[in-house]
């Protein structure tokens, strides 16, 4: 009786671990959307931290303006990515795939440029950890 129950417990444990592993799986499009969402959250959270530094007089107004400009440049690329991903989801043809690839490359570069700049003042890795990334 006790052994049967222990076997049941072990079975549930295995099931929990299997479900945990399954939680990591997703389609390429799902992964792309998830990655883009994570990147967006990091950029927006770091922008808040950056603005907070300016309010606390830790950075100059010129630096604040540069960070804001970098964010707005990234935002244009992110908007293009959002539209490209949505278009590819709808059409899934060669042309929309090419546009999506270009948008992914562009927004990756823009996000890197923005995070490189803001990362001089904001602890981006710590922020990413706080966001669970």
């Amino acid at each position: 009786m006790r052994h049967d129950r222990m076997r049941n417990v072990s079975a549930v444990l295995v099931l929990v671990l299997l479900v945990g592993a399954w939680a990591c799986a997703s389609t390429p499009l799902g992964k792309a959307v998830q990655a883009a969402d994570a990147q967006k959250q990091l950029v927006e959270a770091s922008a808040d931290e950056f603005a907070r530094l300016y309010l606390n007089k830790a950075i100059s107004v010129e630096t604040y303006r540069q960070g804001k400009d970098a964010y707005q440049t990234w935002a244009k690329g992110e908007t293009a990515l959002a539209k490209s991903l949505a278009e590819w989801k709808r059409l899934q043809d060669k042309d929309s795939g090419a546009r999506l690839s270009q948008a992914l490359a562009d927004v990756g570069a823009l996000a890197s440029a923005y995070l490189d700049f803001v990362g001089r003042f904001v602890d981006v890795p710590a922020l990413a950890k706080r966001l669970g990334q």
Partner: peptide, 30 residues
């Protein structure tokens, strides 16, 4: 976690569109 896979085109666009800089309170104050 896997709900990203099932998003519609409209939901993907809404999820990923960036906020305006001043949409955040702290950025508006800055």
């Amino acid at each position: 976690s896997t709900s990203y896979d099932g998003l519609t085109a409209e939901e993907i666009e809404a999820l990923l569109l960036p906020a305006e800089w001043s949409a955040s309170e702290v950025r508006r104050l800055a």
